[in-house]
Design a protein around this nucleic acid. Sequence first.
DNA 1: CTTAAATACTTTTTT
DNA 2: AGTATTTAAG
Length: 723
Amino acid sequence: MTDNYLQTLNDSQREAVLALDQPLLIFAGAGSGKTRVLTHKIAYILAEGLYPPSAILAMTFTNKAANEMRERIGHLLPHIDIRWMQVGTFHSIAARLLRREISLLGYSGNFTIYDEDDARRLLNNVVDELQLNTKQFPARMLKGVISKYKNTLQKPQDVTESVSTYHDEKIARIYAAYQDALRRNNAVDFDDLLLLPLDLFQNHPERLRIYQDQWRYVLVDEYQDTNRPQFQFVQALAQTHQNICVVGDDDQSIYAWRGADIRNILDFENTFPNAHVVKLEQNYRSTRNILEAAHAVVVNNADRAEKKLWTANDEGDPILVLECFDERHEAQRILRRLQKIRSNKSLSWRDFVMLYRTNAQSRALEDELRRQGIAYRIVGGTKFYERKEVRDILAYLRLLLNPNDEVSLERVLNFPTRGIGKTTLERLREAAHHGGIGMFEQLIQVTALPVGPRQKNALAVFHKEISRFRKMVDSQPPDDLVEELLQSFQIREHYEQLGDIEGQERLANIQELVASVAEYREHNPESGLREFLEEVSLLTDIDNWNASADAVALMTLHSAKGLEFPVVFITGLEEGLMPLRGGFDDRADLDEERRLFYVGVTRAEKQVILSYAVTRRRYGALPQPMMVSSFVRELPEHLVEHKALQVTAKTSGDQKATFDSIAKSRSGEEAVLQQGDKVEHAMFGIGQIVRMEGSGERARVTIKFSGNVSRKFIAKHAKLKKL
DNA sequence: CTTAAATACTTTTTT
DNA sequence: AGTATTTAAG
């Protein structure tokens, strides 16, 4: 049986599966069968009885990847019980570990996991309490800075020692106070989830030894996206037995902005000196054209490990490039093309994906899909569990489990409105912190609070009701508990009273939440509310995506990592959007954008269609003229079929009008042009001025573009960019 | 304290 | 453009 499935692997894949006595680094190019190797490797270990399932620890970045891996291993080994095999995201594995161990670090096991929004609320409170201005220290910025500190393993003390400016000193103060507040709330943020296990290992080596003994073989997927804490976590677990296997591709590293450290992959051999390296370079996914195109772009990056994918697949179709007038036109053109391919190649809706750089770009595509009545599934955007009404209910539930969670307490204290306003809340917080107790505890003694009798009563009633529910948490099934909670706090009534469509929608969402709790209970009869909340807070965008539904998929390029589709559309390929210009033009940033583009292209099996719009509207502003992305220009001409925009009578009146008005509005500060200058035209791309006629308002230029195309423009209206 | 109106802010990607 | 938060009126 073992031989059977090893035969389906190619030589390097087999080598990667069988290499077990040294640390192993697998360079796995896009579509080279990385997941296959990981699952077969684990299956091999288990089938040969080298280690039991409980000794396997496999870490991924999304729950979807983890579930798939578990499922595929189960499929390979139908007779082995793999329930005790640990496969999960870094964050969920760390959370599970902390539930058991965190009391050693001064938290309690019922800690709450704070997401971005919770953390920001807490930061605002902290800044308030330090009597600083939340405008001068916006939570968003603070969270980013603190995250960076945490990702580089800098504690508040380290930061405090190294600050120089007033601003930095304050931030260090806030960081320290934030960390204290988290502890007071018995809460951890996403970064802590990875950092606290490191503290545990350092301060309690005997605990580390237990996990080293338990997890005898450690595997890491998407290793190029690990950050420093994740690396140390893995290293700590594997350092004694050195049984570690990591799989990654530096060309697909797209999370440096979140602290992913590409050195983790490039330095693997330094950390594990006798590491074995296997490269998987045969691609099974894409056509030759797609692979060649992707390669032609990514070779422009500095600092990449030298490798080149190859494939035995057909040459396939050329890369189509659609030039569009604006985002609406882009959506129309994409759908026309999609329909055409679908009927020509008899594909299903699910065979198509539309990718974009930013979530906001989905709107135009969605509008057109809806207009044409085509089923689509969108990944990301406003997530279900981030809706206000859903979060409010979750806040109640979190408070039941962890009464120290003041972010949740403050969220529900006056929801639905019960006459407890800002002042009352402030007084309550003051009294509690002054007395060195939690706000929830303070609710027991409301008589001493300097607030009105109505407020006192409301607070007391609230406290009594929450306390009643707290006693029920462990005995009641979670879905019943939620239902009773909705009743008791009259939450449905609150939305019914609104009597508008929005209220109806929110009611429906609450119903969906109840259903999802019930569904969770059904699938996990042994788990309770705590486990449900943990799962919910560690969900990733892609986890909710059902690939089997027959619908066109829409998602960001980031979400698409690890997926594959017969036909891939990459939209919005304009300079400034893809690559996205963010602040400074750092070389490393541009390279990461290029890798993102590479990830997008290599998702495709059969065909890649790129599109860009000549004008695009960005958040309510007037449409801006856009230039085609430099990445598109890096594609070799022989692989590309360019479908240019026809500026003829076909172009509708209002499109022309808009374009003219943009040209006019932009013509104010025109650079002085002269013959021989290289210029860029929004619609035609780069060209050279071959002739100039007239001057001032009536100056005309003749420009020769690539492909020996010449055009004549009125300089004032042509919106030319001098290069 | 609550509701309605005004204004600020967003859009980079996410565990 | 749309949402969220802040401010003013009730």
